[in-house]
């Protein structure tokens, strides 16, 4: 266990370094993935506003909303993709330990994925923000080979809540909806 924690810190440190000084290589990685992904033309619908007590955002008009107790899903229009997975942006707000920092929240989450996830691979990492709230953005791959997904995940902390906005898609269709997903994430405003 001690070794795993150490390994996690090492990886996170390396990721930070890559994010700080290696941005050209990170961008290069993104370009390669884009070239390898399925080229599907996605119609962009005009955005509409979505708001609740905790946050507001803008989503494409043709994206469906599904609200569960702790999760809110913004789903692409139900298309019969070959992978049968409906790409989505999910907003998850959860209470965090009192005093926990953004980096701690982020590290705990990534550590859990690294120790229990399958084929967890970091693609890109950088700093981000939700409005004026600092955030971290990470793009990674995780999952068994046939069910592997690609994630764009942004972490933020405000008060006693952790805010996690995640765009999930199969790697081959990730880029198809990436502009819409990034638009949703960029419009995300914590109240």
């Amino acid at each position: 266990m001690k070794n795993i924690a150490g390994y996690t810190l090492l990886i996170v440190a390396l990721v930070f370094l890559a994010g700080c000084i290696g941005s050209p290589s990170s961008q290069q990685t993104v370009v390669e993935i884009a070239e390898n992904s399925s080229q599907v033309k996605v119609e962009t619908a005009a955005p509409v506003s979505y708001t609740n007590k905790l946050y507001a955002l803008e989503k494409p008009a043709n994206w469906e909303v599904e609200e569960n107790q702790a999760f809110t899903y913004f789903k692409t229009s139900a298309e019969e993709d070959s992978n049968n997975f409906q790409e989505n942006v999910v907003v998850h707000i959860l209470p965090i330990t009192s005093g926990q920092t953004l980096i701690g929240f982020f590290q705990d989450s990534i550590t859990e994925l690294m120790t229990t996830g399958t084929n967890f691979t970091v693609v890109e990492h950088s700093e981000a923000s939700f409005g004026d709230i600092p955030a971290y953005k990470i793009i990674y791959l995780e999952g068994e080979q046939s069910m592997q997904k690609k994630y764009l995940q942004v972490f933020a902390v405000k008060g006693n809540n952790g805010y996690v906005v995640t765009y999930t898609a199969p790697p081959e269709t990730f880029d198809n909806y990436l502009p819409e997903a990034e638009s949703i994430i960029d419009s995300y405003d914590v109240k």
Partner: peptide
Amino acid sequence: GTNVEIFLEGQGSAQWSGCDSRVIGKCI
């Protein structure tokens, strides 16, 4: 077309099989 989140009570790690995605310790 709906999504269901599964999580484990308490602290610690687990191995999940069959999840379509994973977000913050939860299997979606």
